[in-house]
Design a binder for these strands. Structure first.
Lengths: 203, 203, 203, 203
DNA sequence: AATGAATGAGCCTTCATTCAT
DNA sequence: CATGAATGAAGGCTCATTCAT
């Protein structure tokens, strides 16, 4: 008799799923979606491939659910807690955001989400729900940073020009780095962020 | 049957191979190595997939030979013809290089090589000869630009700091963009290069 | 925990098994043996698939036990209760049998058994015990109806000819219909039986 | 140098496809659609499973193409060449049709088509094109025989009643036999057809 | 040289079966 | 007794590679 109540079981089940989703995010991010094999996710999560299908119905669902989970779990909770700190200048806030996006506790996850979204953006024939997801996710970054760019331009901190285009360039650079060399942020993070923001800072 | 002499045949053969390698570079660059199918290369080259195996023995060999060919054919010949123009400042030369690397006439090839090398760098279990190849290619960019960075620092045009690290950041940004969003360079190229170089330019 | 005595427990256990076997017969009949999934049986029986394996050791055993159970429980008890009614003519008895075989109260079961046996007959590599089972079941129908055919021929009600062959044709037609279109019997059953028996009835 | 012209190659290709389709019809008919494995078709056709996919893109397409091919190849050509023989009575024509449907030269194919259509009819979620195909095929038999039934009723040869329903019963019996016991027709075919048509013949 | 027919290894997914609770 | 988590064998399909023509 193992008298576990329903709550405990649900808890366990949820952890199992999380375990798989965490693995999925990591492996998807590292290898790209097409090249990620279920067996890789299973191995990373230390479960059999069969079990993966016990919790998810398809590779696509794994991807979708994992993204959803990761975003809920990581993004909303923490990503912008400090972004509305009106004590500091817009440019400073942008730096903090940049810094933060790559240094939060569970870097692997949020980093992974970023890279996966990258990967998705360049994919054709994306199913509608993923298209929306990607757009939403993209919007998220844009909507968060756009006001700061405009504000910075008004205060003379940020160079003139089409704010949206400027933001586009900045985000392309960031996502490019993440896709290309995630280890980039390991050392001297603040200094590197400083250099990156020089792109847009007025002298 | 027009009796062609050996030279003509060799010529023809070489053209055929070049045709395939050109296609390979393009398709490898666009899709990544693993995701590139022989049939895609064959289609791009407008030959049957069987013929591809007439000239090359395996997918890996196509890759290797195509890279070699592309580098020999394009890189050394043209990439730096203007880089030693001592009329312009180091920073300007860096801009020109950046611009050039993405806009030269045969962009597709050199750009492709760049992206393929990107792709290779993130691959594990690379056979030794490719490892060396990748390293050599990386070295090439570094060796070409490093002097310009130092020179720029000396002349006060480029911000202080470890020149090698600065160059590393700059190249990471560039390669990230290419891996991530090659279309980035389509419009307003000069303006974008201008913004990118702001990262390293002293005010 | 209400302390139940052994008998009650046995009773309960038996009911559980019956519940599963009833479900199995139904699902096997509807979907065929190979296409029946354990999960379908479990769902039909409203138990978990794990429990199915608590009572049976394999899919094959479920099939075998269910058939045995169904035959014992239903066939002998009821199928021919009226067949020896000597008030009516042999042809009439054949009609009643035909009618009965598809319309008796617990149609689902006996009908199901019929269809499963159909299914088994067309299977190769049947284990020996099932071969015998199928043969025995076939024999059952033959032995029951054969005397009626002979009797009918003697009384001039049924057309002349090899009684066994005639019966074979009749049973092939019946079993074909059941295998092919069980819904056939839904409407106008008596009329349809009337038409079918015209095959063998002397005018 | 194997100077085969295009025609020869096309011919060969067509034969290969036909070889696979013939095998497909046989295996699909014997095992049902779901239970038919590509490997079974490949084995029957004596080719590798890979080659099957060289000619067809999916199991479904194999099914669809094979049915189309079989119908074109066999049905139209021969099935009704004699059906419009106005020398003989409607009932006789029905007998001839029945006989013919099971004894034409390439029995395996036309028989197979019949069984596969049977199988399809009882399938849910059939893709639209197959639904139409099945209906069309069903219509074919109905449209061919229906006039004969009506004619026979008018001439008093066939029993009264809803001609459509009568035909339905007759076809259900036929298709049931084919699904259930194709070997039924091996011996004494004419006699058996005679008995079957007694169902509908007036005395 | 050139084509495309042919093969088989490998990945996604399903499902019978076993096991921990 | 009961549940559902966990495993792995097997089948559909893709694609690199080989081969006949």
């Amino acid at each position: 008799m193992a008298p576990q109540n329903k709550e405990q079981l649900d808890q366990k089940k949820h952890e199992r799923k999380a375990q798989i989703m965490r693995a999925a995010i990591k492996v998807f991010a590292e290898n790209g979606i097409k090249l990620t094999k279920i067996s890789m996710i299973a191995k990373e999560a230390k479960v059999s491939h069969g079990l993966v299908y016990h919790y998810f119905t398809s590779k696509d669902e794994i991807l979708y659910a994992s993204l959803d989970w990761a975003v809920e779990e990581h993004k909303s909770a923490k990503l912008f807690q400090e972004l509305n700190d009106h004590e500091v200048s817009p440019l400073e806030q942008i730096k903090q955001f940049t810094l933060f996006a790559f240094t939060e506790s569970d870097t692997e996850i949020s980093n992974g989400v970023f890279r996966i979204i990258q990967n998705l953006s360049s994919t054709n024939d994306l199913p509608e729900h993923l298209v929306q997801f990607v757009e939403k996710a993209g919007q998220f970054y844009i909507e968060s940073l756009y006001p700061l760019f405009v504000e910075g331009q008004n205060s003379g901190e940020i160079i003139k020009g089409d704010a949206e285009e400027l933001l586009g360039i900045y985000l392309t650079v960031l996502s490019g780095i993440m896709a290309d060399d995630p280890a980039f942020w390991k050392d001297n993070t603040e200094q590197k962020v400083g250099i990156l923001t020089r792109m847009i800072s007025e002298r």
